[in-house]
Design a protein around this nucleic acid. Structure first.
Lengths: 236, 236
DNA sequence: CGGACGCTTGAGCACATTCAACAGACGTGG
DNA sequence: CCACGTCTGTTGAATGTGCTCAAGCGTCCG
């Protein structure tokens, strides 16, 4: 893909570059290095000094955090036009989590200095970065609140709802989550065990709400799902 | 308190102003408006547009979020030299939570424009703001992980440990949390019910780890507490 | 003095975890 | 191409943590 095509495909859709003039976008793209990651490749490890940040062009990353006791937790998945590592780089902190490609992934990469340079010329970028960080903070706050008050079934439904927005792909049969997602992965996003996820999905499958298989989930009845997510009440 | 005294009391201790020259600090303090809040006063409400941010000089704020269903969750307490509203103002988002004074509180207040002005003259401020936001994000990530993997007792211990750092006051008998903190408050920080908190504290009191009363908690044996927080293992 | 608020304590229960065993699917290598 | 091992998912049963419901007590304050 040549630079013009790349620019076209990104124009007006990347939160970090919102409100920037075209020449800024050109300049910035020129300074970024393109990289390709094979499925399973680890982009950065939790605890490493954060020296560069990454814009995903195509593919998907899993961002996960591990505690000293080995507890694992999936912070989020990142898709095209989203940023990886921005919180750490902007804050001058080590990466707080590990990022792994769950599909073959293409990305554009800048180092710290490049970010500082362009942010000096177009301060709008710094504002955008702060807005993105603010959004992440809100997401996490919501998640904490959900973990505190809501039942597992409700949280699974909510999580699937978010994944549909982020990575849903319409098919004849319903909306499919467009990357490999195991029960274990879902469990680590929701804060439960793969057993409970399995049981819950099996129940939903019986009711025709989802169809799921090996590392695949398809939502057939999004309305029912959002009812479960919203209130937690439903008759069987 | 006059301005010079105020400056002295803040110098070198406010994360937002780290690395700034003295004259910057002077200029910034001059532009801030001083306010006093009586205990119980609400500084801002969740969902309001964020037009100003606040540096706490003395006192303490409770930052809490409420869901549509009435679920409440305490995000954090803020003490002297900390910032309230910075995530929202920097990100251009509405306040994500409600801030209430839990003691009589004095603060210094700036509006958006003032922040933008000084950040333009001393870009270091913007970097500091980002670092603070990054830190908040990490805290929340840790909290999510804890909610997912750890038992209630362990989380209560951890939360108390943090409160000791933030607001501990040495006394002859041990370290006391230096503001009114009810069982309900602790429950909303930890993600449990006041019943469970009450039972847990009662058990600890028997073992001599804490002494607690109406809206008061004193830690007598911080070592035992951090053992509980760390491993979750202990013989009764 | 009486009400409101914060705290304690008990009993029962439900949701989700833990433990355990198995069944398919995938892919790798012989 | 088949056999095997690994990875993913399913399902059952037992267990237990922490929630819900309920009642009562002490203290602070109007």
């Amino acid at each position: 893909m040549r630079n013009e095509q790349l620019r076209e495909s990104l124009k007006g859709k990347v939160p970090l570059f919102e409100g920037l003039p075209e020449e800024a976008l050109d300049e910035i793209l020129k300074r970024g290095h393109r990289h390709q990651l094979a499925k399973g490749f680890i982009l950065f490890h939790q605890g490493e000094p954060a020296d560069s940040f990454h814009l995903i062009i195509a593919g998907r990353l899993k961002v996960a955090q591990t505690s000293e006791e080995g507890q694992q937790m999936i912070v989020r998945y990142l898709g095209p036009r989203e940023l990886a590592g921005c919180v750490a780089v902007c804050g001058g902190l080590p990466y707080p989590a590990t990022a792994t490609a769950v599909e073959d992934t293409w990305l554009l990469q800048w180092n710290r200095g490049a970010l500082a340079d362009v942010a000096e010329r177009w301060p709008q970028i710094a504002l955008n970065a702060m807005r993105i960080m603010g959004g992440r903070t809100q997401e996490l706050q919501d998640r904490v609140r959900e973990l505190q008050g809501e039942r597992v079934e409700q949280r699974i439904a909510r999580t699937l709802g978010r994944l549909v927005v982020q990575a849903g792909r319409r098919t004849a049969d319903g909306i499919e989550i467009d990357f490999p997602l195991s029960r274990q992965d879902l469990a680590e996003m929701v804060g439960t065990t793969l057993h409970t996820v399995s049981r819950t999905l099996a129940a939903w499958e019986q009711e025709g709400i989802v169809r799921s298989g090996r590392q695949k989930v398809m939502i057939r009845d999004a309305a029912s799902l959002s009812v479960i997510a919203g209130s937690g009440e439903q008759s069987s």
